[in-house]
Design a protein around this nucleic acid. Sequence first.
DNA 1: TATTGTTATACTCTATAACTATA
DNA 2: TATAGTTATAGAGTATAACAATA
Lengths: 153, 153
Amino acid sequence: MSSISLDECACQMLETVPLVMRTVRTEMRRHRAADLSVPQFRTLAFLNRQAGASLSQVAEHIGLTPPSMSLLVEGLVERKLILRNTHAADRRRVTLRLTARGESALEAAHGATQAALAGKLAALSIQNRAIVVQAMQALRPIFELSLHGEADR
Amino acid sequence: MSSISLDECACQMLETVPLVMRTVRTEMRRHRAADLSVPQFRTLAFLNRQAGASLSQVAEHIGLTPPSMSLLVEGLVERKLILRNTHAADRRRVTLRLTARGESALEAAHGATQAALAGKLAALSIQNRAIVVQAMQALRPIFELSLHGEADR
DNA sequence: TATTGTTATACTCTATAACTATA
DNA sequence: TATAGTTATAGAGTATAACAATA
């Protein structure tokens, strides 16, 4: 029963996660104020928690190569959503942090997308909502870890 | 408590689903035998269930525009994973179905990705696996529906 | 020499607009 | 005229390889 549940679990996720993801992407773009891709959104969210992080740190956390992250960051800098400064002690490094506008954009995107998701989740029973929360809490640490493991392949 | 759970639920999903999705994409590409993007995989899976479907039907189900699906299909036809024939009764339409090779590719991609996911999910307790399965079963119908609603915007 | 980040280049995925063929 | 699908074109996102600047 343990092994049936394991494959069943993987199979269910393979069916469902891409569907949810498409909605997340679509909702995140629907609100013109903060027209962000998912990686852009996650980059802003990371910098909100880790102000002053380096490019490499962000790249590793988001799961992009440094060149890709450099381009993504360039776009956010051009849009004045983040600041990119040279590190005081090591001039090779870069320190990244949100601007006030970046904070607003993050908040707008987060709020709008969360609201859209919440709208759909309203169709769930309270019991099922609790189950979804438990499931996400159980899954997150597993897949957070796996990103670091995959960055070097 | 119902409304707290609703926002909490959305917020958790926003944190977790992109992480899972990245792993799914990566795993699906790691196995060279069936080097498929997620939409390609889902297209094969759909045709496996709905042999003979039209281009529009597949496009709507996967959530792509017809031109995008036409290109995706073209790629799968070139790789001999699907067959594209003119519909007998209405020569404007196209009927799509898997080749034997397409069935193998689908099975390989599904098996490999499912196995990789299962490997990570092994870290969960049996109780949590059951919760994840329940969560996915609850979420799928909601987000399947939402695709159709978004196709026309 | 090693490390941090950027530039050059190319490929995949997706969209919108314009078109063709059939009904 | 309306519908099913394709072609043309463009833009975003990502990667690898080569490079520049700093340590």
